[in-house]
Design a protein around this nucleic acid. Structure first.
Length: 706
DNA sequence: AGCACGCCGACT
DNA sequence: GTCGGCGTGCTC
């Protein structure tokens, strides 16, 4: 191809910068490879590749994240071995997000990318590429044509409950908001649509609000990502969306190789082909509403206009895979990178979100006009009624349930079954603690003396630390039995049970007794005519720093399933918690909770990182941490422990201010890499035995407070 | 991970 | 001399 005197264009070396799919922390950086001429058309940023690593014949999978003309690497480049597929699956913004999320949690970007990009499904991908080619002639050589923007056929309905235009403006101005959901249920769409399914069309008002927000965003030509904790919430949201969008927008859900409509979904219950088809649809250059559980927050989205999380404090938003970053934190980073609007929608208020509100980082949007559920606290004093006594229900609650059952369904919330009975002081009902180590006391069997769950000491000469009491009581004993007995107490009434294993999405509007464990309450058509929160004391007796916050969330979400003006009876809960529910002022409670955490220097007032490993590895990491902070910053970090952990490891907890988070993460990351690259043999083991990583770090673990 | 390189003890 | 044990380090 050389013409005399002219430098051939092809002589410029094309370099691919590649992220390797490897769990090794020392490989968590970009590697440069030469792109052979034959691969140049397909080797674009975002495609999957195979590249050689270290020695001939060994290949690693990875993604090209950048293509340049100059390698940073001084040395001979290896060639990219293969472009696995021309599909650009790791978009630049998702890559940037993955890198930032990994850095914040001292983890691998490739671990985050694994959450963001589902496993490749060859058939689905081929069908999608062929359809794209046919539709727009899109090809690696030609930029993808911009498809006609889908405009909603119906005008977006006003987002009501917050004053005219308030939420719409927040979306248009790309604000970050904490939005208090309206605490009742709504009928999705109008009654004429799908009459035989009329009772299934009731959803929490939050779902109607979030759906309307997404449809409004769609009207601005932008995509939304809606993140929910579980599939039951997802079903409500999809029901609400179906009511606002024409049927064709929901197309393609069952068929992995068919085209996906405006609404795409990504959740844990999908088959791999279904998930990949929906994922690929998100890559298309048209605005979509993307609905799913926690990892949907990483979905590629064309012109992202809104990220909205429902009930962000639900533990299901916490990712159980390394690097364990909760969807709230991912959303905050993604909002910053994309400049989209961001909404945390909930009934209760977490201390994390309250902190962001008090910083002025989130705008607090309250309801207007104010919708106040009718909450009635009552003592645990059991009614004189014979049936009520059998079921241990106080008279107020008993009467409310009886009255409501004449006209409609009644919800009874009980604690999770299988909860080990909690021992408490018989006179003041505060949880009983071990006199030796302060651990929780348990009764092994009915008649054995209580012993400590931590140190095993028998609590023989026990005395309550709050009052003078010396006798025990079992709190919330037998809530499973409660359900059974309620059925007998209300004969001739239909009893529906909904718990973790047998959960119901919705129930009809006729009289029925619905017994649900907290978090598994079905939506009732028209709302419940009464709600009974029976196991309050027992739920509060959990050993956790976040117990009050958790209970408020469970109770608030159940209360929000009541019909307007229908009473909620909460049994055996008084003080601030009851007042918070009666006045429906969860943010004020969260503010006090946050103030307490500041005093105690607990999250979310500060951040935490757990460092686990051999005593030497942990000590060395902690030393580097102390060395890394100078002067006044040294007061922003403190270390608890080390204390013994599982199998000869120790554990330290690092507490640090948000302002030094990046530095703490990079220091601990360096310690992890150093540990992984300089491994030593373990004495007394077979030759060539290598210890598994002897240093692990985890950021922002909520469970260390339990 | 998995493989190459290099530095000390027993050997034809 | 040098063979090969295993500890250490690197991967574009």
């Amino acid at each position: 191809m050389t013409t005399s005197g002219i430098t051939p264009v092809a002589s410029v070396t094309r370099v691919a910068r590649v992220m390797l799919e490897s769990p090794l922390p020392q490989l968590d950086r970009l590697f440069d490879y030469r792109i052979p001429d034959a691969l140049i058309p397909d080797a674009r940023p975002g495609v999957r590749v195979k590249v050689p690593l270290r020695s001939a014949g060994r290949v690693s999978r990875g993604y090209i994240v950048e293509v340049t003309d100059h390698a940073d690497f001084v040395g001979t480049l290896s060639d990219v071995e293969e472009v696995v597929s021309a599909a650009v699956v790791l978009t630049p913004d998702v890559w940037a997000l993955a890198r930032r999320v990994a850095d914040r949690a001292a983890g691998n970007a490739s671990d985050v990318v694994r959450l963001a990009v589902p496993p490749r499904q060859v058939r689905v991908e081929k069908a999608w590429l062929a359809r794209r080619q046919k539709a727009g002639g899109a090809s690696p050589e030609h930029p993808e044509p911009v498809e006609a923007v889908a405009t909603p056929t119906t005008n977006p309905p006003p987002i009501d409950g917050y004053g005219p235009g308030v939420v719409e403006n927040a979306i248009a101005q790309r604000k970050r908001i904490a939005l208090s959901a309206v605490a009742t249920v709504r009928q999705a769409g109008n009654a004429s649509a799908g009459e035989d399914e009329a009772h299934t069309a009731w959803v929490g008002a939050w779902a109607a609000t979030m759906a309307a927000m997404a449809v409004h965003t769609l009207g601005l030509g932008r995509s939304s990502i809606l993140v929910v904790p579980d599939y039951r919430d997802q079903e409500q949201l999809e029901t609400a969306l179906r009511a606002l969008l024409p049927a064709e927008d929901h197309a393609g859900q069952g068929t992995a190789t068919g085209a996906i409509g405006t609404v795409a979904r990504l959740d844990a219950r999908q088959t791999n082909p279904e998930r990949y088809a929906n994922f690929l649809a998100c890559l298309e250059p048209r605005p979509r509403i993307i609905v799913g559980t926690r990892s949907v927050v990483y979905a590629p989205a064309h012109e992202l206009g809104l990220i909205a999380l429902w009930d962000e404090a639900d533990p299901l938003h916490n990712e159980p895979l390394s690097p364990y970053v909760a969807s709230r934190d991912v959303a905050l980073i993604r909002q910053e990178q994309s400049g989209s609007a961001l909404a945390f929608v909930s009934h209760s208020r977490s201390s994390e979100v309250q902190r962001l509100v008090e910083l002025g980082f989130l705008d607090d949007i309250a309801q207007s006009p104010r919708f106040l559920p009718k909450v009635v606290p009552t003592s645990a004093q059991v009614s004189n009624d014979r049936y009520a006594q059998t079921a241990r229900i106080p008279s107020t609650a008993w009467q409310a349930a009886r009255t409501a059952l004449e006209t409609g369904p009644v919800l009874i919330q009980v604690a999770r079954p299988g909860y080990s009975p909690v021992l408490a002081c018989a006179s003041c009902t505060s949880p009983a603690h071990c006199l030796v180590c302060d651990g929780p006391l348990r009764a092994q069997s009915k008649n054995s003396p209580p012993s400590c769950a931590w140190c095993g000491a028998i609590a023989a000469q026990w005395q309550c630390r709050h009052c003078e009491g010396t006798t025990f009581t079992h709190i919330g004993q037998g809530s499973a039995r409660t359900a059974e007995e309620l059925g007998r107490a209300f004969p001739a009434t239909r009893v529906i049970v909904s718990d973790g294993s047998r959960s119901r999405g919705d129930v009809g509007g006729g009289p029925a007794l619905v017994i649900a464990t907290r978090g598994a309450e079905p939506v009732a058509a028209g709302g419940y005519h009464a709600v009974l929160l029976l196991d309050g004391e027992r739920m509060l007796a959990r050993e956790s720093l976040t117990v009050a916050e958790d209970c408020l969330r469970w109770w608030s979400n159940a209360i929000a399933l009541a019909a307007p003006r229908a009473p909620t009876i909460i049994v055996g809960v008084g003080g601030d918690l009851a007042r918070t529910l009666v006045t429906w002022q969860q943010p004020r409670f969260a503010s006090e909770e946050l103030a307490d955490r500041r005093r105690l220097r607990f999250p979310p007032a500060i951040r935490v990182a757990t460092v686990r490993g051999t005593a030497e590895a942990v000590a060395s990491a902690v030393k580097e941490l102390h060395d890394s902070v100078q002067g006044e910053d040294s007061a922003k970090i403190d270390v608890l422990g080390p204390v013994p952990d599982e199998n000869d490891f120790v554990r330290s907890i690092v507490r640090f201010d948000y302002s030094v988070g990046a530095s703490v993460a990079s220091t601990l990351r360096a310690a992890v890499i150093k540990n992984a690259t300089s491994r030593r043999k373990t004495p007394g083991r077979p030759t060539n035995y290598r210890t598994p990583p002897t240093l692990r770090v985890r950021f922002d673990d909520r469970e260390i407070l339990d």
